[in-house]
Design a protein around this nucleic acid. Structure first.
Lengths: 245, 245
DNA sequence: TTGCTGAACATGTCATAACAGGTGCTGCCC
DNA sequence: GGGCAGCACCTGTTATGACATGTTCAGCAA
């Protein structure tokens, strides 16, 4: 049953194998959730060493197609995404998720007072003689699965006033309910990679791509209220936007 | 000079080493563009085998901090990004880049007539008896460096009319100059990984994160005109959005 | 001075081998 | 029948070694 991999002498073996496996996954030979043959079986199938099989699998893991679990095996990753709307008008995250039939929740990691960085000071327009700010770090869950880590910087007065409420609910609704109207949010979307720390929080692999949403929220009078960033698992969340002329 | 890596017996050696190297990069021991010590030097420094050094470096490459070049060495990756505005009103890509002092250009990969997929048919509202469409594939450059690959599906009549113009300039301006007004664009932003093919086009490594912008553009009367997707290097491009109440 | 060649050195690929540690099942013991 | 021990099998980590291939530069020849 040994099958030689097509000898594209141009490209390395591990790439030829991972591309062939990708093709098989694409064609449905292995469905989402299916287990792939074990490393030893693949070694026999492709007539290569374990290091080459592992490299091929690593390629596909780094491309988000596979996951591996020690002691169990390698599996085709099922893809289930939620969409976060960034279109006008601003929709709160939980409403946004609810409309997709997904429950949302948070797990607070920390809520502490600290001295803000110069960057945070300037974006929040803080006077330098009162360099105090609250920093909240939390995990955002959808269907009880972690999708994002959020770090928010909240001016001292606001943080102190709504401390307990912020521990269990999201920022925008909390502010909204307390009469702080969010008029405008500027966000920048980009991409980074999970550090070891983030991979722990988000139950993902080291180096997995994360979408970064850096935001500054303004209330009436173009006054900045809060800023922060949300790092979300790119395999679990995407953003939708509508542009008009 | 041999320095034992801190024996966090909890985590694997390669991770301990890559985290230590990350720290050194962060602290500025190695500046952007700098060359890291060679694998052999790192083997001696950390007292580990080459496979472990390579794994540690691979971690950081997958996190976008380093790049390697065969025969030359491993280097700290300089980070230079352009920002694409997705805020209202719609701004054309080239104007958007120009405002950042960056030149933009395209390299056409293909421009061909083909039978559209069912998905493209439904999003473009095509009647099924005329399943013809143009597909343009191009590389988008900023400062003559590839940042994105764009695949656009253009209805047959439009494609035929502006074929030559589309070869050398971007879609939206071309349509705009020919009286097709873009009133509304719906986009979804998400993240994938570079396949081998994409990594060739974008001169990036296999599995590098790509931002995907799936868009549908509508003209007057909510009539869809074109759709497609732009896959951009996440290390070269980020998106900015402004939300209002 | 120009141009080529080869040595030294860099990373890339691949093989073999050993052990660690997680998972799940079988079968024995109580 | 319930629970536990042990085994088979899986991926994870790490070492050693060999050869391939790209880069650079010194040194030689034209």
């Amino acid at each position: 049953m040994a099958r030689k991999v097509s000898a594209d002498l141009e490209i390395p073996l591990h790439l030829a194998i991972s591309e062939q496996l990708r093709e098989q996954i694409f064609l449905g030979d292995y469905a989402p959730g299916d287990q792939l043959p074990s490393e030893h079986q693949l070694m026999a199938t492709f007539q290569v060493s374990r290091i080459t099989v592992r490299r091929a699998i690593a390629n596909l893991i780094s491309q988000g197609l596979l996951t591996s679990h020690q002691g169990k095996g390698v599996f085709v990753k099922p893809q289930r995404k939620v969409i976060r709307s960034l279109s006008n008008p601003l929709v709160f995250f939980d409403e946004n998720m609810a409309s997709q039939g997904v429950t949302s929740g948070i797990r607070s990691l920390s809520f502490e007072e600290l001295v803000p960085s110069a960057e945070v000071c300037t974006t929040l327009d803080l006077s330098l003689d009162t360099p105090r700010i609250y920093c909240q770090k939390k995990i955002i869950l959808t269907d009880d699965i972690p999708v994002a880590v959020d770090i928010t910087y909240i001016p001292f007065e606001l943080g102190a006033a709504f401390a307990d409420q912020l521990q269990s609910s999201l920022i925008y609704p909390t502010l909204d309910q307390n009469g702080v109207s969010i008029e405008r949010v500027e966000t920048i979307l980009e991409c980074t990679h999970a550090t070891h720390e983030m991979s722990q929080y988000l139950e993902t692999s080291l180096g997995a791509p994360l979408l970064v949403n850096r935001y500054v929220a303004y209330t009436t009078g173009a006054r900045p209220v809060i800023c922060g960033e949300t790092l979300s698992r790119a395999d679990r969340l995407s953003y939708s936007i509508v542009l008009t002329k």
